[in-house]
């Protein structure tokens, strides 16, 4: 009988003030077990102050095969960067 538990993705906030970051995945029957397993597997040395667990199949990801086209709109917009604009050297604090 296939009894494999569902897969969860684990995100950890390492310190207050930082964002949660993906650290890996694990199997668990439900969210409570996923949180407890994530604590035991990924924070044995106080690596986190907060954990998110998300069912892996709830994540929609961009397709790496299409990434050239997908990210193309941002490619030629150098005017979105501060260095695009000319400012005389004697202008301070800008």
């Amino acid at each position: 009988m296939n009894t494999e538990f569902p897969l969860w993705e684990v995100f950890i906030r390492s310190h207050g003030g930082l964002q949660h970051k993906h650290v890996g995945s694990l199997h668990a029957v439900d969210a409570t077990m996923a949180l407890e397993n994530a604590r035991d597997v990924y924070t044995r040395r106080q690596e986190g102050v907060s954990i998110w667990v998300v069912p892996s199949n709830a994540i929609t990801a961009s397709d790496p095969a299409d990434s050239d086209a997908f990210f193309e709109p941002a490619k030629d917009k150098i005017y979105r960067h501060p260095t695009f604009y000319q400012v005389p050297d004697n202008v301070k604090h800008m």
């Binding site: 296939n2 009894t3 494999e4 897969l7 890996g24 995945s25 694990l26 199997h27 035991d40 597997v41 044995r44």
Partner: peptide, 19 residues
């Protein structure tokens, strides 16, 4: 045990199941 779990999870991303 933790190391085994990190590694099983890494292998699973390639399409093999834990079971």
């Amino acid at each position: 045990a933790g190391h085994g779990l990190y590694l099983y999870a890494a292998a699973e991303t390639l399409g093999v199941s834990r079971d």
